[in-house]
Design a protein around this nucleic acid. Structure first.
Lengths: 233, 233
DNA sequence: GTCTTTCTTGTTGTGTACAACATCGCATAA
DNA sequence: TTATGCGATGTTGTACACAACAAGAAAGAC
């Protein structure tokens, strides 16, 4: 895909096999999540291996894990295809994500340190900037980054891992649906959510942050469904 | 490990690569979960591949996924080691599992059909039989089978998958701790839990079943912690 | 005797060649 | 024209050879 000299440099510097794996895994997951690889894209193991400067063997490990995550699907004789996201199939995932986000505020809530607080403020600023110049890809990136900051509110590591898994299964739906919706409006709503949660975090009320997040997740999904229904009619 | 002709037969019959993968994955996960491979066991890729009648390549996929599940750890030059389970590290997992089990009764509860009911009754019978002749390995197997029956109470597939993941991360702790505890007593308690949940299910009160399960998970973990503390003193 | 060094052995990680398979284009026959 | 076969091409799946590495044994120096 890209020339991306930094990437191959990082891969060469990496000492252990696990480091190399994580670089490839994170890179591929990110590309899928921001629609550099839209649903249906056919990836070639050989091409990817060449780009990363490795053989197919280590690359395949990353692809297999992403397949287990539900982001890819390998079919012999055809290729490795980026899975599609279907709103109906995602209903259950969203229901579960709602509950888990509430748990983030309730299970082992962590009093936010200075670093975390600074990260929230940074996200808030980026959201405000995005309001002035809405852009789909930047919106997607912000959504991902905000998720990672948000889960810092809990000390429960398994909860973080499970939430991350489900997040990456669903986050692409926005990139698919946004064209049918009002991007500026969604950005404004998202900025509002971030502001509200950041305020709650600054007050040290982690549980409130969880409830706000849950509420916005619920409303966001309702809007998605509404627009989908309106569009198919 | 075993000769196990049925296994290699099933692997040869399997048409697709995914079928072969699932057979190997399930087999290995089961062996780890019932302590055929106790924590610390060093598995050899070559030996396993030979036993399964395949090459290292397809076997490695199963091992890599199990590593991502947290059940194995591969170290170059050393081997593939079955991970240990530590009670303290599992505290967070248990907290999350408690909440998730409650969700099973609350999120998309499914009115149990005849098949499910029969499965519950079967488990209850096996539990009663186990009370007459307590056995650690049968106890472990029953625990696993009961889990799979219990998650039939929800229609939320992502919840089932996440619960399964966490279950297999924790279930081995019983095999590690039981020697320090009273097996007969634990079996009796487990049989009581199963009877109570089966009754709730027969009444169609799925939410109650979830709460009972949550309560027993909590008490079970408390007993584990208590015995661990008593043992280290 | 004890410590150090080197070698042997066994393991996972990686590269590569080939098998199995699906898909598309194209020629050919009806 | 249309249907059919078939072959060329590109893909993932599998097998195998070797590299990289860790650990223990054995031999040698002191």
């Amino acid at each position: 895909m890209k020339p991306s000299d930094e990437l191959v440099a990082a891969l060469e510097e990496a000492g252990s096999a696990q480091e190399r794996f994580e670089i490839m895994y994170d890179t591929l997951r990110d590309r899928i999540s921001v629609s550099d690889y839209p649903p249906g894209t056919r990836l070639s193991e050989e091409a990817l291996a060449a780009e990363f400067g490795v053989s197919r063997s280590p690359l395949r490990k990353a692809l297999k894990i992403l397949e287990a995550d539900g982001l890819l699907q390998s079919v012999q004789g055809v290729g490795t295809i980026v899975t599609d996201v279907d709103l109906d199939e995602l209903t259950q995932v969203y229901q579960l994500r709602m509950e888990l986000n509430e748990l983030v505020g309730r299970l082992s809530p962590k009093h936010p340190d200075e670093t975390t607080l600074a990260l929230f403020e940074d996200i808030r600023k980026r959201a405000e900037a995005l309001r002035s110049a809405p852009d789909m890809k930047i919106f997607a990136r912000l959504n991902i980054d905000f998720f990672h900051v948000f889960v810092r509110l809990t000390d429960n590591q398994p909860l973080v891992e499970v939430s991350e898994r489900l997040f990456y299964q669903t986050c692409r739906i926005w990139l698919k649906m946004i064209p049918m919706m009002d991007l500026a409006e969604e950005v404004a709503i998202f900025a509002g959510e971030i502001a509200a949660i950041t305020d709650a975090v600054r007050l040290g009320d982690t549980e409130a942050a969880g409830h706000i997040r849950r509420a916005h997740l619920s409303m966001g999904f309702a809007r998605l469904k509404g627009h989908a229904r309106r569009h198919t009619l």
